[in-house]
Each structure stands twice: as structure tokens, then as C-alpha cells.
Amino acid sequence: MTETSEPPQEPRRVRSAQASLGQVVLGFELIVVGLAALTIFGLGALPAWLALGGGAALCALMVFTIALMMKYRWAFILGWAVQAILVLSGFAVTMLFLIGAVFAGIWAFAMTAGAKLDSQKKEK
């Protein structure tokens, strides 16, 4: 008889609810930022290189933040910075003040609700 040995299983990585919710919010926000950059470009509110380049840079920052949220706590601070940049983009197109404020509110809710869920999970 031969026994097959199974490779040792790695311990399951505990997924943070706060990080998961933050990633979802930033994922949806990626779509909005891409469309906002096109809107700013189309309205001529900023030069084309700034509207499209700035939108692309913010999207890249968001993807970078999404990738780091499961590993590093400082990525949450980067997420808050993304929210501030989006609100400040309202200086280019006024409606973005509202859109930025809505997403900042969703981000704040995700961060507080996620932290609460994580603390409840630790108590069990």
C-alpha cells in the first residue's frame, strides 16, 4: 500500500471586513472617476492632458490602494486621500463636489461598519 501525502495546508488568511468593504467602494469609484475624467475633458473645464492624465493617475492610485488594503493599514489612509482628491475635483466641475461627498460618506460608512464587524469577529 502506498499513501499519498497531501501538502501541508497553509492557514487561512483572515479577510478584514473593513478592507473588503473599502475595496468594493473604491472599485465602484473607479468607474465614476473614469467617467468624471471624460466629463471634465469633454466640457473643456481643464486642459486635456490634465483632465485625462489626472483621471488616469487617480484611477491608478485607486487600483494601488485596492491592492494594498489587505496587507497594510496605511492603505486605509491612502483611501481617505483618494476621497479628498475626489471631493476637491469639484473645483473643475461643480457637480463633483456632490459626487465626491456621496462617495466620501459611503467610504466613511464602510470604514466604520467594517471596523465594527471586525471587532465583533475578534470577540467570538
Rank of each mutant, 00 (worst) to 15 (best):
F41K: 06
G34L: 05
E3T: 10
P11S: 05
P8I: 04
S20C: 11
E3N: 09
L58A: 02
M69P: 01
A17C: 12
G22I: 00
Y72N: 11
V32R: 03
M1D: 15
L26D: 00
L38V: 11
R12L: 13
P47C: 00
G27I: 07
G44A: 05
Q23M: 14
V24L: 15
F28T: 13
L61G: 08
A48H: 06
M62S: 07
A37Y: 00
A19E: 04
G42K: 11
A56P: 01
L46E: 14
L35M: 11
T4P: 08
T2A: 13
F64V: 14
A67G: 10
F41V: 06
V25P: 00
G55E: 01
I31D: 08
F41S: 09
L26R: 00
Q18H: 08
I40R: 02
F41Q: 08
S16M: 08
G44S: 04
A56L: 07
G55P: 01
T65L: 01
L38C: 12
V32I: 15
T39D: 06
M70N: 15
Q23A: 14
T39E: 06
G42R: 10
M62E: 06
G54W: 00
Q9M: 09
R73D: 15
G27R: 07
K71F: 15
L43Y: 14
I31T: 14
A48T: 07
R73Y: 10
G27V: 08
R15K: 12
R13S: 11
T4Q: 12
M69W: 02
C59G: 07
L43A: 11
L61C: 15
L43C: 11
R15I: 13
Q9N: 08
Q9S: 11
E10Q: 15
L21M: 12
Y72D: 14
P8H: 05
G22A: 02
R73V: 09
L52N: 02
G44C: 05
R12E: 10
L38M: 14
T65C: 04
A19P: 03
I66K: 08
G55A: 05
V14A: 07
E3Q: 09
G27L: 06
A56D: 02
L52G: 02
A17S: 14
Q9C: 07
V24M: 11
V32S: 04
G55R: 01
R15T: 14
E29Y: 09
P8T: 05
A17Q: 10
A37Q: 01
S5E: 10
A57T: 06
T39Q: 08
F28G: 13
R12N: 12
